[in-house]
Simulated scan of single mutants.
Amino acid sequence: MTVMRMPWLIAFVVAVVVLVALIVVMAVGLATHRIRIHSAAADSDSADDLSDETTTLLSLLPGTSIVVDANDEVVRCSPQAYQLGLVSDDAIVQQQVLTTVHEARRAGGRHQFDLTTETPERYANARDRGDHVDTRSVRRPNWLKVTVGRINERFVVVLVTDVSEVIRFAQIRDSFITNVSEQLLEPTTALAKLADSLESEEIDREHVTEDARLVRSSCNKLNHMVADLLLLIRAQEPITPSSANRLNVMDQVRAVAERLQPQAERDGVRLNIKGDADLVINGDKDQIDSALTKLVENAIGYSKEGGVVSVSASRSTDGTQVVIRVVDQGVGIDKRDQGRIFERFYRGAEQSERTRDGVGLGLAIVKHVALTHHGDVTVWSVPGQGSTFSLMLPVAR
């Protein structure tokens, strides 16, 4: 745990040092008359009261900084302050930050605390790709380390270190360990039960058969998890486009659909395939096959009997990308889950009889395949109305 805290701890210490340096610079500036003394009538022009040294120092800060004047107006801040949900319309919107600003202005000193915010929806929820709007992510917690200090009688500075990625990584790591441990324990537990049944003086064939079924099921899940983990490992190295790795997109789509057709028929789901036969990308055939397989398998698994899963491939409006869309008419994905479904081992609440045995690695594989191919993957979903996953990959040149 100490190792995990080091990145944000170092950044936090740096932020505190910079805050002290900022206060020193302001004090020196006052001593040498580099800051003009304004009358009360000129108070509205707060930004002009910041010295060149202060402005330069703020621009060099590694984290997010906010400068507030005597009227609680934000006179300068980093763009991230808006994205982290701290500032809106030139005002601090987090009451805890504003209260601490007042305390620092009144009593001086340095004030530190932790804060959790949410990214405003306009910054996190959607982006326009030209021909459609995809949901890339939804609001997710931002875990912040906040330091507040008074510069002088007029200005207070707020320094913010975003440690969200460190905390999320720790959460994913813990989930990874928990899930892998559970998957490894299942086969051994099932084997132990089977051994007990076989060693019994009165062997019950029905119990032996049931225990053997559990062993086979557990081993299949373990094999599936190991195979997916190997796929994740192989999907870490970026793909370099060349004439040797050109792939026809529809050939890949048709191959996946043909292989999964028996599963679709067994589950009472109809597959519809369409697309431009001339679309070509640069990629690793096995990785692209794995990503498409995971998307179509999920669409079939979450669809109701009698539903339709559509897979299409087309060129984006600007012509630079191939967009492969997998559309289902299934249960959909709750909004609170949409921002996390691409994380390893994360599984949403809506599981069906056909998907409950999954280990939560499928969409993580899709995400990493997209990234290694210099592409992206997005999701649009409404509970009860189905989901659309869009895999975007650069057109081969």
Rank of each mutant, 00 (worst) to 15 (best):
R347T: 01
V323N: 06
R336L: 06
H368K: 11
G375L: 11
G319W: 00
I324L: 12
S352C: 10
K367F: 05
T388Y: 08
S316P: 00
D337H: 04
R340L: 11
F389S: 11
S312L: 13
E353F: 13
I324N: 09
V359N: 09
H373R: 11
K335G: 13
Q351V: 04
F389L: 15
F345T: 02
G358C: 14
V323I: 06
L363Q: 07
T372E: 12
E350M: 08
G358P: 02
V395D: 09
Y346I: 00
R354C: 05
V395T: 10
I341V: 14
Q321M: 08
R344A: 11
R356Q: 08
E350R: 11
V369I: 14
R347M: 01
R340S: 10
T355F: 09
S312Y: 04
H368D: 14
D357P: 00
T320Y: 14
I324R: 10
S387K: 02
W380M: 11
G348D: 03
R340I: 03
G358I: 10
E350V: 05
K335Y: 13
A313W: 10
A349T: 02
D328F: 15
T372P: 00
Y346N: 04
T317R: 03
P383H: 12
S387R: 02
G348R: 04
V366R: 05
G319E: 00
G348S: 06
A313Q: 12
L391C: 04
Y346W: 07
T320K: 15
S352K: 10
K367W: 09
G348A: 04
S387T: 09
F389G: 10
S381C: 03
V382A: 15
I365Y: 04
G332P: 00
L363N: 07
I365T: 06
T372V: 11
V322N: 14
Q351N: 07
M392V: 06
A313N: 13
I324S: 12
Q338I: 07
G375S: 07
G319L: 01
S316C: 06
D328Q: 12
K367M: 09
